[in-house]
Design a protein around this nucleic acid. Structure first.
Lengths: 218, 218
DNA sequence: CCTTTAATTCTTGTATACAAAAAGTTTGAC
DNA sequence: GTCAAACTTTTTGTATACAAGAATTAAAGG
């Protein structure tokens, strides 16, 4: 379980920002939230500060906190950084990965493939998460691993959306295969470039998706 | 000026952790700090939470907060991540950098050289900061820039120490030259590798320095 | 009728009060 | 004498009270 009420509230608010309950620019009122969660303002304020440090909300002195949904440009930027971090994981993992982990990676990818074939979106998502988590771990750099998990988590809601793009899943699996091949060869440079491309393309796809949705909404 | 008292206190505590006033494992007592800063526990607690999220202290539920100085392994890891992030900056900057920024970079490096010649440690440090800050900015990715600045700031106290190593300054300047040359050629791959090496070597140097100091202290 | 300014209201930031949990101490039994 | 259990003390987490700054509204002057 969580540390204290403030943490539970922070997670809850995070979810509400992710799922769009709170939109960009919305003000999060302390007293409203306090009565909503049946607590005093103190734990609410703690939770809001945590969100502010994660970058999910902006805290303006003596004014309040406001939801800060990343725009298209910032999203591309975040995916670009994610791509670089994962690319670094791949490069390091190529020389450091254990045989057991490599097998695990292959098996995870196989399950991922099976999920795609079965049109099991949740299954795909779960195994894909695992695939990337293994890579982070196998970088052999736990600080890098933590940073990757942090940003990965931040991008989760946006990654999820672009799974719906036609043909993206198959392409994604092909990229996984290429990454695996490079890792098996111990080719760090190729692994890093394959993985960088694999992640960066997600940002671009998301961008295209947004661009195609925007005019449709008008 | 800062946002509120809690921010000032957080910065102050951060400085105290950096300069060693608080050592690894030290407990930060809320009431003690409260009377020390002449405030109530509330802003102290806010400050401590900020430090906890930065990773400078560990907050154990219902137990208190404890200073968490990174060990040698974690430091190497952090420098490795810094190297990868800066490397990414270089790769991106190589294609995106403006002529004006490139000139600025050259001039900054010249001032850096002058500071080395004049044995002006502070001057070297200032210009070196600027050199790297320009690179972050010229990645053209402001999210990446922010992440770089964050980690750079975190590593500051450790980077400072290894400046004293004999010959390190001259070697560092040579690396700067190599980075500049690659950027001028627009060679992203070479620039990224030069910069990665430039930063990664700092972590290694620091490690060596620590290893040589440890036995001497016994 | 619009603009500017003063007063009121609302909200955030800080202090204090209280509750619950952990640490420390004392006392009792074996 | 040592171990254990209950009680006391200390400390964190939460609630409430208060203060100060920002926003809004009302009032006055042009």
């Amino acid at each position: 379980m969580d540390r204290k009420r403030a943490d539970i509230i922070a997670d809850s608010l995070e979810g509400m920002i992710f799922d769009g309950t709170f939109g960009d620019g919305d003000r999060l009122d302390e007293v409203q939230l306090a009565e909503r969660f049946k607590v005093s303002r103190t734990p609410i304020r703690e939770a809001l500060q945590r969100l502010a440090q994660s970058g999910l909300v902006e805290q303006i002195p003596r004014r309040g906190v406001f939801v800060r949904q990343p725009g298209p440009v910032e999203l591309i930027e975040m995916f670009e950084v994610m791509a670089e971090l994962e690319s670094a994981c791949a490069r390091l993992a190529a020389t450091r990965i254990t045989d057991a982990a490599l097998r695990d990676l292959l098996e995870t990818n196989a399950r991922c493939n099976a999920a795609v074939a079965a049109r099991d979106a949740d299954g795909y998502y779960r195994e894909n998460e695992r695939f990337h988590a293994i890579l982070y771990r196998q970088s052999g750099n736990s600080f890098l691993e933590q940073e990757c998990l942090r940003l990965h988590r931040r991008l989760m809601p946006f990654r999820r959306v672009q799974l719906r793009l036609r043909g993206r899943l198959k392409q994604s699996m092909a990229e996984h295969e290429a990454i695996l091949a490079a890792l098996e060869d111990g080719d760090g440079l190729r692994a890093s470039e394959e993985l960088r491309n694999h992640v960066a393309v997600q940002g671009e796809k998301f961008h295209h998706l947004m661009a195609s949705l925007k005019p449709a909404a008008e």
